[in-house]
């Protein structure tokens, strides 16, 4: 990655989406949130979302904070920069159970993972890599041109949810 050339960088805040035709290093920090990277392996372009909760319940703004919105919007965003649906592959990260409780209602991480995987199945996009669950927060960095995603793990890393 350290080839000496300057690559644009973008930090992805929770509840936002990023995809650009140019090469970018897209980074984000995940706890129970889930980030999905979509990448066109032919065009070599892609993007990422960062969902905090699984489903929008029709209240408040319909932002990509919610998984079902985030997945639809990421897909249309990567298609709008020229990616072809049939060339897309996905990588899924995050969904840690950071609160450490075993109660289902608090297991937002697991519910986010289930939602993301379900939506990808519905879109018929193959998941080629994933690093999900567990109790550690993650920081991920995606190179939008090579599709390489680097993952850093650690309990101190969680500043996003």
């Amino acid at each position: 990655m350290d080839s000496g050339k300057m690559i644009n960088r973008h930090f992805l805040f929770p509840g936002t989406i990023f995809a650009d035709p140019l090469e970018y290093l897209i980074s984000t920090v995940l706890g129970s949130c889930v980030a999905v990277c979509l990448w066109d392996h032919v065009l070599r372009r892609g993007g990422m979302n960062h969902m905090m909760l699984p489903l929008w319940n029709g209240e408040g703004l319909a932002t990509p904070k919610y998984g079902n919105i985030a997945m639809e919007k990421l897909l249309s965003k990567v298609l709008s920069i020229g990616c072809r649906r049939e060339h897309l592959v996905a990588k899924v990260f995050g969904g840690a159970n950071v609160s450490g409780t075993g109660l289902e209602v608090f297991m937002i991480g697991d519910r986010n993972i289930t939602l993301a995987m379900g939506m990808l199945e519905k879109f018929r996009i193959a998941v080629v890599a994933k690093d999900v669950g567990g109790r550690d927060g993650r920081k991920i960095v995606m190179n939008s041109e090579s599709g390489v995603v680097m993952v850093g793990k650690g309990r101190k890393a969680v500043s996003g949810d």
Partner: peptide, 25 residues
């Protein structure tokens, strides 16, 4: 606002590794 666009701010306890290389996939 603690999240700055700083590539080297991995957690102290974190281990950095190449997860996967799509060019070989």
């Amino acid at each position: 606002c603690s999240i700055l666009d700083d590539e080297d701010s991995f957690s102290e306890a974190g281990n950095l590794f190449i997860f996967d290389d799509m060019s070989e996939a």
